[in-house]
Computed example of a mutant assay.
Amino acid sequence: MFHADKGTAGQLDGSALHVGIVQARFNEQITNTLAAACHAELLALGVQEQHITHLRVPGALEVPLALQALAESDDYDALIALGCIIRGETYHFELVANESGAGVTRVALDYQIPIANAIITAENPEQAAERQSEKGVDAARVAVEMANLLANLE
């Protein structure tokens, strides 16, 4: 049975939220731009600078562990995963993409905290560069919207 929306769809007011960002340093030329776009959008949505925590880890496989540490602290309303995985000539791309994605999802479900997964997976650096700013903005919006949605369900 369909129930009418209680006004929570698209709620992008971040003024009361605490947000944690975990950024992979690997492919830093992409992830720095991704992080800057995400951070700017969080501020535009009202998240206060002092309520944004930004951690950097070596690569995408380390992102879930840092997210888990933030989630365990119970200090955050939403988390954001940032990274960039570019296909190479070996199976390593699939391994890193699949395992990092599964880890991010597991933390979100285990700790019941929204995590915007903005770990870019791309065929080449040009494709990643085309997506870096938009993906950062999208991650901020998803984090704020989902934090508000879950708060309204409680």
Score class of each variant (00 low, 15 high):
A116R: 06
V96D: 13
S100K: 08
Y91H: 14
Y111I: 13
R106S: 14
A78D: 03
R131N: 02
E94L: 06
H92C: 13
A118F: 05
L79E: 15
A122V: 04
L95G: 03
G101Y: 06
I113V: 15
Q112C: 15
Q112V: 13
R131Y: 01
D110P: 04
I120Y: 10
A118N: 06
V104C: 10
V104H: 10
D77I: 12
Y111V: 10
R131E: 00
R106F: 14
F93E: 02
R87N: 01
T121P: 00
Q112K: 13
N117A: 04
Y111S: 08
A116Q: 06
A78W: 11
T90S: 07
I115L: 11
A128V: 05
G101N: 14
E130F: 04
A108T: 11
L79I: 10
A129T: 01
I85H: 03
Q132C: 07
Y111F: 14
S100W: 06
Y76A: 13
P125H: 00
I86M: 04
S100L: 07
L79R: 15
T90G: 00
Y91C: 11
E94S: 05
T105E: 15
T90I: 05
N117F: 01
N117K: 02
I119D: 00
E89V: 09
V104W: 07
A118S: 07
V104R: 07
Y111W: 13
A122C: 05
A122L: 07
S100F: 08
R131W: 01
A78Y: 11
R106N: 12
I80Y: 05
T90K: 03
D75Q: 15
A108C: 12
L79Q: 14
T90P: 03
P125M: 02
D75R: 15
E126M: 09
Q112F: 15
F93L: 03
V96Q: 13
E99A: 13
D75V: 03
A129Y: 01
G103T: 01
G101D: 07
D77Y: 13
P125K: 01
T105W: 12
V104Q: 03
E99R: 06
N98A: 05
D77A: 09
N117S: 01
Q127F: 07
Q112G: 09
D110G: 05
E123P: 00
D74M: 12
H92L: 14
V104E: 08
N98I: 01
L82K: 06
T105N: 14
L109F: 04
I85M: 05
L82A: 04
G88D: 12
E126A: 12
E94M: 03
Q127K: 08
I115D: 10
N117H: 02
V104M: 08
I120H: 09
I119F: 00
P125I: 01
I86H: 03
T105A: 15
N124V: 08
E99C: 11
H92S: 12
